[in-house]
Each structure stands twice: as C-alpha cells, then as structure tokens.
C-alpha cells in the first residue's frame, strides 16, 4: 500500500511540467527514503534524477518498495486537473495496475480522484558517482533560462566557460556569434538574485542548447539554479524542489575529437 499526501500539490504539477518533454515513460520509485525517479531521454544523451524526500510529505505511507511505471505526458494531463493550491494524494495498492491521484481544494469543498493506468517499463538505473567539480555556478534560474533561450536563436550549442572573470555562455551560428558573461555578484537585495561562482580550476565545455532549454522548464520550481561543471563529465543542472528535494539534469558534453 502506498499513500503519499502532498500539501503543496502545485509542486508536483511543476515537477511534471519540467519532465514531460524530456522523458516519455518512467518508473517512479517509492521507498522509505522518498518518491524518486531516474530516467534518460529517448536519445540517452541526458538523464534526469528526481527526489522528493518522505519528510516533505504530510503523510507518507510506503509499506514496501514499489515502482510505478507511468507515461509522464498522461500523468501531467491528470495533474493539470488539480488546482495550484490543491492538496494532492497519490495512492496505489501493492500489486496495482493503476494509480489514483486525489485532489482536495484547500478549504475541502471539492474533492476529485483520477485513476491512471500503470505501465510495465523496463528501465535500468545508472550509478552516478560523487564527483568533485571544477566549477559550481549558482545563479537566478530565470536568468539562466533567458540566456539559453536567447542563445538558441543564434546557435545549436553553448560553450560554458568558467574563469576568474565569471561564467561565459557562448554560441555561434550562421548569422554570427554571441557571448554572455555573468560575474560573481552577491551585492543584491535578495539572496535569490545572487550569482555565486565557486571555481577550483577553469573549465570550458560544450553542450547542446536543445537539452539546456528543456531543463529550464524546471525554472518555476526554484529561484536559483546550480550548474556544476568538470572537464569531460556531464554537467549537472540542479533545481531545488522546495525544502523537500531536487531535480537534477545531467547532460553529456560534446567533445572535440
């Protein structure tokens, strides 16, 4: 038996909106730790890892580890029917072939339940080793989204370079080139407006903008995004999900051969 009650149901809507264009079908894994997902995009270039810790739910019952295979586009359709302020409860029996989403309005005057068919999905997990990063950039998530969107109108790839000067996002295309530099800046009114650059070594990596733009669908989840870079390793683009977890996108770099 699985029963997860999330008071901030709107968070789950935002999580699905950030995943559904990247991944078609995925297994949601439920354990005592929390509600999690690991999935690759269809071309196996990017990987997404979601964790919503059990403590973040108002009620979390998971009698035994359970894997729920869902079509994310269909799940997003169901969750769109919930109000942004609704309380969302996810329910499933141990051997169930469906999952129930229950939506309660904040003042309890409307209660809805939606039943969605589950799928059998063959998926293997990848072990993600702990890595020491050469550079970690924390910046406003809306700014990062704006940069990715702007650069993708000019080129297909972005070179992200971190030096003492700051973090530089560069692209080139048929019409010309573009460079955007963001400097370390903590002299801001609100902490979420800060750009914090921690650099052990200079690093410069190239990535497909199409994927970066897809990751920025998670922007409504968090005011800040963390971009972790190391030579020849996938970049990690992380958004916090309130105080209860995170969504991490990993993208393999394009390597000169």
């Amino acid at each position: 038996m699985l029963e997860l009650r999330l008071v901030q149901g709107g968070l789950l809507k935002k999580v699905l909106d950030s995943l559904k264009d990247l991944v078609n079908d995925a297994n949601f894994d439920c354990s005592a730790t929390g509600f999690s997902l690991q999935a690759m995009d269809s071309s196996h270039v990017a990987l997404v890892a979601l964790l919503l810790r059990s403590e973040g739910f108002e009620h979390y019952r998971c009698d035994r580890n359970l894997s729920l295979g869902m079509n994310l586009s269909n799940m997003a359709k169901m969750l769109k029917c919930a109000g942004n302020d609704d309380i969302v409860t996810i329910k499933a029996d141990d051997a169930a072939d469906s999952v129930t989403f229950m939506f309660e309005s904040p003042n309890q005057d409307k209660i809805a339940d939606f039943d969605m068919k589950l799928m059998d999905i063959d998926s293997e997990h990848l072990g993600i080793p702990e890595a020491e990063f050469q550079a970690i950039v924390r910046m406003p998530s809306a700014e990062f989204a704006r940069i990715c969107k702007d650069l993708s109108t000019i080129g297909d790839t972005v070179v992200i370079s971190v030096t003492k000067e700051g973090v530089k996002f560069s692209t080139r295309g048929d019409i010309g080139t573009a460079n955007i530099v963001c400097r370390h800046n903590t002299s801001v009114d609100k902490p979420e407006e800060a750009t914090i650059i921690e650099m052990e070594e200079t690093v410069s990596l190239t990535f497909a903008l199409r994927y970066m733009n897809s990751f920025t669908k998670a922007t409504p989840l968090a005011n800040q995004v963390t971009i972790s870079l190391s030579s020849d390793l996938p970049v990690v683009v992380e958004y916090k999900v309130a105080e209860m977890g995170h969504i991490r996108f990993y993208l393999a770099p394009k390597i000169e051969e």
Partner: peptide
C-alpha cells in the same frame, strides 16, 4: 566537429 556521446559513457549501469 564535436562528438556527442551517450550519458551511459559516464555512468555505469546497475
């Protein structure tokens, strides 16, 4: 020309 490897090149399956 840059080469795009799959993510599996970096992370092991288990």
């Amino acid at each position: 020309e840059n080469v795009q490897y799959n993510i599996e090149k970096y992370f092991e399956r288990f």
